[in-house]
Amino acid sequence: MAAVAMHKQQQQHHHTERWADLLDDDGGDLDLGMLLPPPVVMGPDAKGIKTVTEYRIDGEGNKVKVTTTKRVRTVRRSRSAIERRSWPKFGDAAREAAGSRLTMVCTEEILFDRTRATGSKDKELSTKVDSLVKANDKGGGLLMVCRTCGKKGDHWTSKCPYKDLAPQQGESSADRPPSSDGSASQGGRGAGVAGAYVPVFRRSGADKSGADVMRRRNDENSIRVTNLSEDARDPDLAELFGQFGPLNRVYVALDRATGASRGFGFVNFVHREDGERAIKNLNGYGYDNLILCVDWAAPRPN
């Protein structure tokens, strides 16, 4: 009898336990919710980056940490503009379905395609010709300028039909670029500047085999920079290498999809000796917690 009673009691106990379990389970989410650490807000820092770390329980009862990074931008607006912000939508916009997605951020990164390389601000005048050459080298046909006849977008210098008619360049002054050869891009602008850069192929004594020289020179003064910090961008590189002499190209390889740096880049110096100095000084130089590896770029395979 006692045994039965005991069993009964046990059963009852068991039962209550189950019920209690259920009750616990019901309240459990709430309790757990309260047990979760409070959200942590970091920043915004100097760059306007604000990081919010939140904890929550997902559908399967797992604890999830959610880190959101936002860029906070402070925009100054007039009082009336702020007032206009709160205007109710009207016309078709008021009846707009929530998912109509009329406004979308472009998934594609659109670049401001520069005709000229960045980071060559004060050297613009002297490196104008070179940047044009560079644009041509890219093969985009974007800015095909013939240096012999000055015609734009028609043919390359090497294919110029007026090549034979162009005055011989060897006899012209060695110190300043001759503006008489009709190079439209350079005409008059570079000529007046004292000590302006004279392209190698126009210097006295240089061989005059045209485009070939140009390409070789472009390659020769190209420096490859590896182990570059991910935060480094074209202007940073221009600043770093610019102290050794005029540059005509600065390029940091970026990942097409993410826009993040791939950790290497190229710098083209106008003068080879500047490049040599830069390699000597910057190879092994600590930059943004990484040690730079700087050397001449391997010449292009063709």
Binding site: R84, F90, G91, D92, A93, E96, L102, T103
Partner: peptide
Amino acid sequence: HTPTVWYADNGDRLGTYR
């Protein structure tokens, strides 16, 4: 036929003039 006004910072449509 329908001129439209947008918020110039985020591109949200504010309204249309029918």
